[in-house]
Design a protein around this nucleic acid. Structure first.
Length: 564
RNA sequence: UGGGGCAUGGUGCAACGGCAGCACAGCGGACUUUGAAUCCGUUGAUCCAGGUUCGAAUCCUGGUGCCCCGGCCA
């Protein structure tokens, strides 16, 4: 290992860290990822995770995982478990530094007592409605609470009784005494503690007062010795408050730094909206493969490597932006291209009968999984017989120019097998093509003919007799608009839900080796796309494969342009 | 003049007073037992107006546009 601490990424945050390291503000880097356990992690969180863990790693520092569990009414253990699973899956390790804000409830309470004693906090009896009125507006100052000048003793007594459970929910709060006329609303005597007689997933009914985010977060960072507390832009206005707590209490002072959260085209990234999609049944769950959640992406076949590569490539800044989905897809394909086994599967089967092949004949080809490295590649046996399936779209009776696939009288190569020539077409009463008759050239075994003649098209295929039946799920974007919130007046983001985001193929034909596929293993169904076994709906003998991402298809693009 | 923040090709990110660059997308070509991948080439940008300077994306002034803030959510 080298001692090199030169950051491998550089951005405005590393600039700030470099400055801190140079001017002596800090002599180390310690970050944290602070999820609230009230939902599943999504690709936007992945950006933050990669940033926090990545930056610490670059500087030889550490990263804590800390659950921000200060609101028992929305938080659940289900989420704390899924969050840990997702972060581990992404490839990051918090070692023994798993913390919960609730670990600090005792200390946070004592800090509150200190603030009261300093005359910097008071118990307020205003109702939520009154409080809103007293807070003022964006352009007008607020008014001091009538309870603002209670004595230290009374505040101490009242706060202790709040903790003791003497008062009902919403009847009182502990507020910081700052400035009701501040143009920054966060400083207009913000609430520090509220009364909540709710069962907490870790502390049970030990507490009936819970600290607010601003207060708990700043002090949790301080307690853990976090040097750089990286959060999203909307907390920029909160930084003066963050600093106020640490200064008033005279404790270790972490530096909050804000960056722009990730937005992606054709999807939504807010936990509230995602939860809505789940609850209203627009998707099958948090792990629906169309969801931008890490669990959904994992099920879909995304790799952690691709997601981390994505996080690196998009960079970090303070400018609001919407990253093009195509960039995500690019890094995904790039990663899958290097690791996915190449196999054959027919999505929309069309039967081909090879007339001059022996009726009961059968043979197998040993085919490498990684065709570009035939020498070292593992292989599997692919059976061939008189009747095979090809892709319906690989045949056209009356093909346009530049269609290089099968057509009457035309010769193509069956990948790794033989050259075949289409001799006749069978149709049903509606004129629909039902099967094709072909002849094969026995000399072309393996896919090359000794006379060296060239064929332009190479098709994938599956032996009819040996085919493995499977369900395929083909996904499109969850929304039809690059920006789902782009709706006419009075509209809703759900108006843009793509009704065709899921296409189920029930009668796909796969090469038999796919019976051995395991969850998490990426495949390329050649000429189609990358697929992986569905971890939820696959049953013995009834495989379901998710299309992770299609291959780039320049023929489809040509056709689309022709259609215009 | 409530406060805070942000503006660089179509998209995302660099350039930190000295030739505006990278990636994706696009376009053209080569190669191909995947119309994939790969390779080669290529189009395209500093929000506006002033100012400072030999020199401004960068500094200053004034505009404009967009985002965030009035939970006892985070």
């Amino acid at each position: 290992m080298s001692e090199d601490t030169t950051p491998s990424r550089s951005n405005f945050i590393t600039d700030i860290i470099d400055e801190h390291l140079e001017n002596g503000r800090f002599d180390r880097v310690h970050t944290r990822f602070p999820p609230e356990p009230n939902g599943y992690l999504h690709i936007g969180h992945a950006k933050s995770i990669c940033l926090n863990f990545g930056v610490a790693e670059d500087y030889g520092g550490q990263t804590n995982l800390r659950f921000d569990d200060t609101n028992p009414t929305t938080e659940e253990v289900e989420y704390v478990e899924s969050i840990q699973e997702d972060i581990r899956w992404l490839g990051f390790d918090w070692e023994d530094r798993l913390f919960f804000a609730s670990d600090y409830f005792g200390q946070l309470y004592n800090y509150a007592l200190q603030l009261i004693q300093k005359g910097k906090a008071y118990v307020c009896d205003l109702s939520p409605d009154e409080l809103r009125t007293y807070r003022g507006t964006l352009t007008e100052p607020g008014k001091n609470s009538p309870y603002r000048d209670r004595s230290v003793e009374e505040n101490l007594d009242l706060f202790r009784r709040m903790k003791a459970g003497e008062f009902p929910d919403g009847s009182r709060t502990l507020r910081a005494k700052i400035d009701m006329a501040s143009p920054n609303l966060n400083l207009r005597d913000p609430v520090l503690y509220r009364i909540l007689h709710a069962e907490h997933h870790r502390t049970g009914d030990e507490w009936c007062i819970y600290p607010m985010y601003d207060y708990a977060h700043a002090l949790s960072d301080s307690i853990e010795g976090i040097t750089h507390s990286i959060c999203t832009l909307e907390f920029e206005d909160h930084r003066p408050l963050y600093d106020w707590f640490l200064d008033e209490l005279g404790v270790f002072h972490s530096q909050q730094i804000e960056f722009a959260r990730l937005n992606l085209t054709y999807t939504v990234m807010s936990k509230r909206r995602l939860l809505q999609l789940v609850r209203e049944g627009h998707v099958s769950g948090w792990d629906d493969p169309r969801m931008p959640t890490l669990s959904g992406m994992r099920r879909r076949g995304y790799t952690p490597e691709a997601i981390r590569a994505f996080a690196d490539i998009i960079g970090v800044s303070k400018a609001n932006s919407i990253v093009d989905m195509e960039l995500l897809e690019h890094v995904l394909r790039d990663d899958l291209n290097n690791r996915a086994r190449r196999v054959m599967a027919v999505v929309e089967p069309l039967k081909v009968i090879i007339d001059n092949y022996p009726d009961e004949g059968e043979e197998t080809f040993e085919v490498p999984y990684f065709p570009w490295d035939r020498e070292n590649s593992p292989t599997r046996e692919v059976p061939f017989s008189k009747e095979i399936f090809i892709e319906r779209s690989d045949f056209m009776e009356d093909p346009p120019k530049k269609f290089f696939r099968l057509a009457p009288g035309r010769e193509v190569r069956l990948m790794n097998a033989y050259y075949i020539t289409c001799t006749s077409v069978a149709k049903d009463a509606h004129g629909e093509v039902t099967e094709l008759h072909c002849t094969y050239d026995p000399e072309s075994r393996g896919g090359m003919s000794p006379d060296g003649r060239k064929v332009r098209g190479t098709l994938h295929w599956v032996s009819a007799r040996h085919a493995l039946d499977a369900e395929l799920r083909l996904y499109d974007t969850l929304f039809t608009q690059p920006n789902p919130y782009d709706v006419p007046e009075g509209g809703d983001f759900k108006d843009n839900i793509n009704p065709d985001s899921l296409q189920v193929i029930r009668e796909a034909k796969l090469e038999p080796s796919l019976a051995e596929a395991s969850v998490g293993e990426p495949f390329q169904f050649m000429r189609q796309g990358y697929f992986t076994l569905d971890s939820v709906d696959t049953h013995p003998g009834a495989p379901v494969f998710n299309r992770t991402i299609s291959l780039v298809d320049s023929w489809a693009k040509l056709e689309a342009e022709r259609g215009k």
